[in-house]
Design a protein around this nucleic acid. Structure first.
Lengths: 357, 357
DNA sequence: CTGAAAGCGCTTACAG
DNA sequence: CTGAAAGCGCTTACAG
């Protein structure tokens, strides 16, 4: 009934003793380095196998600590008044930074304004200029991001993408949600909640919608679900590039007047807070509201009952993993070639207290 | 725009140099040990403050590695044919074990049969007999668990509870879900999905229900939600202590005949798979089914559309954290006095692919 | 009250 | 192709 694996925990020293060689030679074998005769290599490998040798990560890191500083750069939007969303990834990055500072890792942040492409370009140039060892990118502006990725490829600088992906580009990995599924899941929730005879609306509130991958993929996922359920006729949509309350409110009011049987609103980003405000003002708690991100404003309306579901994709973890992936790649040559698709979490007024970003 | 904290990263050596003492003396001050004159202590503390000294955790652990073995014990149900649920916490524990094996931690597992109290008692006695350094407990049988907790308290052995809590008992902390909220959230989902005129059923399938805290608290949470919504009359319930398919199927069939307007079934544990099977057999995909745990059987029915929502509470993480909490407490004197309430996650056919236990 | 020295397990110039 | 020695930053007997 009781499992108890006693492990002798043999180290390099013991292996060296058994193989009758020096620790340096064992080290060479462990790291697949050249300069060891085939015979010795085989002998050592056999012993490693036999002892089920597990390197002591601690000691390894400590020994490596003497190496020079590794400089990482992060290109991400600054948390604006408009949305505090980007605070979360930044927190995750800071957490990672604190953890690995001791190994001589230095992280520099290059913030840009999501609404101003010029600030993005400027920071791209600074990154190129600073000749970093690794880069973590939130590729909000696709064209310029591709430029940066190409530059890094040329220089052999590893890049990790986060938040949204650029298909087909060479990079270490992508860390973030599968956006299509995020929309698809939202549609599923919408569909569950839709009372007979009522309709669902996709609401896009963003300066740029046309080439905004993050939004478009979610919309596609959402529509795909309704198509599968043969309920496409239940689907309306609403777009506005004016992201202030008044534009949103008047636009939606007009729509509601025309289509009074609206039962669900799906807002494709964190601006759901504006719609919640509008619902509160017109006193319509009965309309189901689905939106994005674990932000204080959104949580307030979740508590009040105007927002019903928030879709959250672990932004803090995204930041944390982004940094750690680069770190492990650069310092320990541990490379994650696989993308990390974050969970797509459903947060309601009944479970938000326990949610962890 | 760019944040760049340059840190000198001074260590014990540098502090010793500046204070003109040996590293041993600095070490004494850092660890608040006696045997240092007040004058030197103050001088050293000032320097530590000034340099914003952060100990290198790696080096500390490595140095400590020479200390004797720490022996942890885990009291948990064995993963049975009936439910593979307990595989997940065990995996988390194994992961933690692998991480900390290098610090001389040895974990012993004491498995018992959830349906046989005698096996629990037997393992409690073995744990007491083995004089461990720390214990992690899934307190399925309350009375015997209290016995064990009292014994540990007497001996000064730290205990962590997981999966369900025993209120009022002294322990390091509880790691697991807030069960009431878990039921409450389920009720919220049920309520969202309930079509007009249809009813919800609480389904308990367990050998013991009477004193089964895990189940009772969920039921209370579920009922509380409907009470708040003034929909208590929509609530039915069904209990069976026979946990085989036939008993469940015939019982539910009888209920459905009497109450044909059933719209939602809420199963309070992982046995939801039996209900899903029954729904499949009677061909009723339209009835919403809510249940527990990310198990392969459940996932299969989620994919097929017979289970609509699975509530999951990060069992693997619970196991991982349980071990790590004891480890940190015993080896680094880092004590988490706060309970860790796990997220209550909602898994559907649209997001299960990305779920992480 | 204080310090010199050895050790944790691994890595890395450097010398042969 | 191989090894002796020093070092990563911290801790700990042991000696004074």
């Amino acid at each position: 009934m009781k499992e108890n694996k006693e492990i002798p925990l043999a180290g390099v020293k013991e292996i060296a003793r058994r193989a009758d060689v020096s620790r340096a030679t064992v080290d060479r074998v462990i790291h697949n380095r050249t300069g060891v005769s085939e015979k010795t290599r085989k002998r050592i490998l056999a012993i490693i196998e036999e002892l089920d040798y597990q390197p002591n990560v601690l000691a390894r890191r400590l020994a490596l600590a003497s190496r020079g500083t590794v400089r990482l750069g992060v290109l991400l939007p600054s948390a604006s008044e408009e949305t505090e969303y980007w605070k979360a990834p930044l927190e995750g990055m800071n957490r990672a930074e604190a953890e690995i500072r001791q190994y001589g890792v230095l992280v520099s942040y290059y913030f840009f304004d999501q609404n101003l492409q010029s600030t993005f370009t400027a920071q791209v140039n600074r990154i190129i200029n600073d000749a970093l060892d690794g880069v973590l990118i939130a590729p909000i502006f696709e064209k310029e991001s591709i430029q940066l990725l190409n530059h890094c490829k040329e220089k052999g600088i590893p890049c990790v993408l986060m938040n949204s992906d650029i298909p087909g580009m060479e990079r270490l990995c992508y860390i973030g949600p599968e956006l299509f599924d995020s929309g698809y899941l939202s549609a599923q929730l919408a569909h569950y909640c839709l009372q007979p005879g009522r309709k669902a609306v996709v609401v896009n509130i963003a300066r740029k919608i046309k080439r905004n991958v993050a939004i478009l993929e979610k919309v596609e996922g959402f529509q795909a679900y309704f198509r599968e359920k043969d309920s496409e006729e239940l689907l309306l949509s609403f777009h506005t590039t004016d992201t202030d309350y008044d534009s949103v409110a008047s636009g939606l009011s007009a729509l509601l007047e025309k289509e009074p049987q609206i039962g669900v609103l799906y807002v494709t980003n964190s601006r759901v807070v504006l719609v919640a405000e509008w619902l509160e003002n017109i006193g319509r708690k009965d309309i189901i509201l689905i939106g994005y991100d674990f932000l204080s404003g959104n949580i307030r309306f979740l508590e009040k009952g105007y927002i019903d579901f928030l879709i959250c994709e672990k932004p803090q973890e995204q930041g944390y993993r982004g940094i750690m992936t680069l770190f492990r790649h650069l310092v320990f040559s541990v490379t994650a070639h696989e993308d990390y698709l974050t969970p797509i979490d459903i947060v309601t007024s009944a479970n938000y207290k326990f949610y962890r970003n």
